[in-house]
Amino acid sequence: MLSDLVGAMATYGLLDRAEQIARTITNPYHLGRALGDLAAIMANSGQLDRAQQLAEHAERAAHTITDPYDRARELSDLVTTFAECGLLDRAERIARTITLPDRQAHALSKLAAAMLKCGRLDRAQQLAEHAERAAHTITDPDRQTRALGDLAATMVKCGQLDRAEHIAHHAEQAARTITDPDEHAWVLSDLVTTFAKCGLLDRAEHVTRTITSPYHPDGALNDLATAFAECGNPDRADNAPAPSPTPTIEHAL
């Protein structure tokens, strides 16, 4: 695939040749991705003017994608790419054009984290609030749960612990509206991992103790125990909920 070739050539410093190949790609999804990755490499190498030109081209290509979800996903990925390489204003402008709320919430949350790393706390908080508004409009409970969980973690990084707890509570509520028991258990387990890794340990432990399905993954429980141990609570690590035994075929029947 040409987009992979562009990435490989850029990684080895063949930037001019990589750009030439990228501009021959006709599929707008692959074109946007190739140019976005190339813009990030240019930005990281100090070629900011050239990076901005490529980023603009990548954005135009993404907006020509006809499938709404593919377009939103590509724009969201561009936001993450540009935020991580310091093209923050470009990333924010793109994020505000995303029309699907789950992808916009994801993009804004990533951008808020990038702003935080640059010391722009006020801007990070504003973007996180925008992401929260977008997340609350998501109708699919699985996607809403994941969006709110990720946002709660971002709020922790912004130092807004009360707000993080509030959002985490809403994430848990959204998860409980999932009717399929196995999907419900998996989504709650993912929340445990998200909360444990960002320091919301009480919330993570509470969610863990409400998972009743014997099929839920043990990784979340291990993440919680590890988080307790790393923050100096070995007793709580030892008392963390134990992984459920894997059901046998006889039990499943």
Rank of each mutant, 00 (worst) to 15 (best):
G86E: 00
A40W: 11
L54K: 05
L48Y: 02
R60A: 14
T64D: 13
E59K: 05
F82R: 06
R33V: 05
L88H: 11
A58E: 08
H57L: 13
Q52R: 13
A62Q: 03
V79P: 06
V79Q: 08
T80C: 12
L38G: 10
E84W: 08
L38Y: 06
M42Y: 15
A72L: 03
N44P: 10
A72N: 13
G86K: 02
D77K: 11
R73C: 04
A34F: 07
L78W: 00
A34P: 06
Q47R: 15
G46V: 04
E74S: 05
A61W: 08
Q52A: 00
L88W: 07
E56N: 14
G86I: 01
A34H: 04
G36R: 00
C85R: 11
L87I: 07
L48H: 02
H57E: 15
A51C: 09
A61H: 02
A72G: 15
S76E: 07
V79W: 01
H30M: 08
D37C: 08
A34M: 06
D49Y: 06
L38F: 00
E74P: 02
T66K: 14
C85K: 05
Q47D: 15
L54N: 05
A39Q: 08
Y29K: 10
L88Y: 02
L48S: 12
H57T: 13
H57Q: 15
D49P: 07
F82E: 03
E56F: 08
L48N: 03
H30A: 12
D77W: 10
F82V: 10
G46C: 12
S76G: 14
Q52M: 00
M42A: 11
G46E: 12
L38P: 01
F82W: 07
A61P: 06
A58W: 04
V79L: 02
E74R: 01
I65F: 00
R71Y: 04
Y29R: 13
T81C: 00
G32Y: 05
L75D: 09
A55R: 01
T64K: 14
A51V: 08
L88M: 12
A72K: 03
R50I: 10
E84S: 14
F82A: 09
A58T: 02
C85I: 00
S45W: 00
I65S: 05
L38H: 00
T81I: 05
I65M: 03
I65G: 02
T64C: 12
H63L: 04
A43N: 04
L31N: 08
L54G: 09
G86W: 00
E84N: 15
H30N: 14
V79K: 09
E74G: 01
F82T: 03
S76L: 00
M42I: 07
L75P: 05
E74C: 07
L31Q: 15
D70L: 14
